[in-house]
Design a protein around this nucleic acid. Structure first.
Length: 103
DNA sequence: GGGGTGACGCGTC
DNA sequence: CGACGCGCCACCC
């Protein structure tokens, strides 16, 4: 199991209508310090259809500005389509943050 | 083979 | 409360 593979698995675990932070993904993948690798892993995103990278937001709940797969607006639209309210490019982590430890 | 960078996170100043 | 630095891993030059 490669590091990237773990990250992808963690991202795929994010349920519909929920979002996860890079830190969450990094923790689920193995180490919280992999936050950078998580970003890079999603950057290469070999399987965007299965890897819902748009559900991953930074620690502030804000979508990545470098999300160039269709524009930041596209990511927000996808999140709203799942029932996630996005305000000013940010989501309410207190309400929409996926809590893996609660599963 | 070595060095620098990157869709980040957290602690400290 | 805002800004800066350090740490981790993988990829590119």
């Amino acid at each position: 199991m490669n590091t990237f593979q773990k990250i992808y698995e963690a991202v795929k675990r994010i349920p519909k209508g929920k979002v996860a932070t890079y830190g969450q993904i990094a923790t689920l993948a193995g180490n919280v310090h992999w936050s950078r690798v998580v970003g890079y892993a999603l950057h290469v995103n070999p399987d965007p259809e299965n890897i819902h990278c748009y559900r991953v937001v930074n620690r502030n709940g804000e979508v990545s500005s470098a999300f160039a797969f269709g524009g930041k607006n596209m990511q927000i639209s996808l999140l709203e389509a799942e029932g996630i309210q996005v305000e000013n490019g940010k989501v309410d982590l207190e309400k929409y943050r996926w809590r893996a430890e609660n599963e």
